[in-house]
Design a protein around this nucleic acid. Sequence first.
DNA 1: CTCTATACTTAACGTTCGTTAGAATTATAC
DNA 2: GTATAATTCTAACGAACGTTAAGTATAGAG
Lengths: 185, 185
Amino acid sequence: MAKKDLRERIKEVAVEHFNNNGYHGTTIRNIAKDVNCSLPMIYYYYNNKKELFDEIIKREYFGLLKRQAALLRTNNIIDFYTKFVYDLNSLSNYDKKVYRLGIKVYLSFDGDEELMEIMDEWEKTILPRHYQILKPYLKNADNDIAIVRTLVHLLETLIESIVVKNRFLPEEEIREEISIVLREC
Amino acid sequence: MAKKDLRERIKEVAVEHFNNNGYHGTTIRNIAKDVNCSLPMIYYYYNNKKELFDEIIKREYFGLLKRQAALLRTNNIIDFYTKFVYDLNSLSNYDKKVYRLGIKVYLSFDGDEELMEIMDEWEKTILPRHYQILKPYLKNADNDIAIVRTLVHLLETLIESIVVKNRFLPEEEIREEISIVLREC
DNA sequence: CTCTATACTTAACGTTCGTTAGAATTATAC
DNA sequence: GTATAATTCTAACGAACGTTAAGTATAGAG
């Protein structure tokens, strides 16, 4: 087994376990069993349980978020957001689980205060980012900011449905809901 | 200490602990310490850890949901939903924590399959219930159902903000967002 | 072939967990 | 006041946890 392989496989199995059983419900022994390696090998690649968890959130989850945020825009704003959400359906199982784990930390259902601070920092960027995206389409009405806020709130639930509840959302349903919020754009 | 008192206090402290540390992160010893009673007293009133957790979800959380669902309606539908969400701000700390714990189980971040089934059953009733409430205000357009779905999705995020993230949402912000979704009603 | 760094193992450490046995205390009934 | 039932305690059980010590295999370099 090459070095990189095993380290990566440990992380993959860890994502699965942290997802299913939470941080405290996950044991290094069970991870080792599923990876089919001895228990101390986990400690060979990761200093301790928390470091393994942190790497998943800090590297995998935020890597995923940044890839998502960098998506190209189409001309039609409703098309863009529909695609943005719809494409989550076809995320790999691994990425979905990483995403789910990140949301768990985001809702402070898992993780610690340090991770929560990173989440809070990220959260502050969400509204401004979407405001920039939507700006050209807004009608300069006094409820512009409210529209952006409503859309972001709606997106949050749609993402949760797909990623956390593991449901498939049809493109048409996503488009309908986004259109309702953005119907004046 | 009267019987009822202690049993109730154990449940209150348990809500706190399950909320902060999850099911597996919570220990009977720590609950007993905070309640200021001996460890086996927990087992005197509850057969085991899982039964204590289950009672919180099955009785406290669903009790709360049913009280919420039974709320009276006003004449104005936007007023109704605004109040519905806004009033969550002033839920007691205990009720907020019970709610938060329920959402955690709802998102299958905690609990087991049996509790998830109960959640699924409840979830099926949500859309029809709100459709009944909104029916008189809908314009019989072909996106009626989509509007109800969008509203329910928006409500979900707003509730999460208040209860899970423990934020205060001003009445005006809530009204704005609900109005955007229901602007044709 | 030997040396050395890397990859991996077995076995155990000390701690904490959920849970219970069994006795002590307190309240209630007659 | 004594018998009985309801509370509460101290102490401990076995099991599982995170982590580590100390050694064995393996593979590439000289």
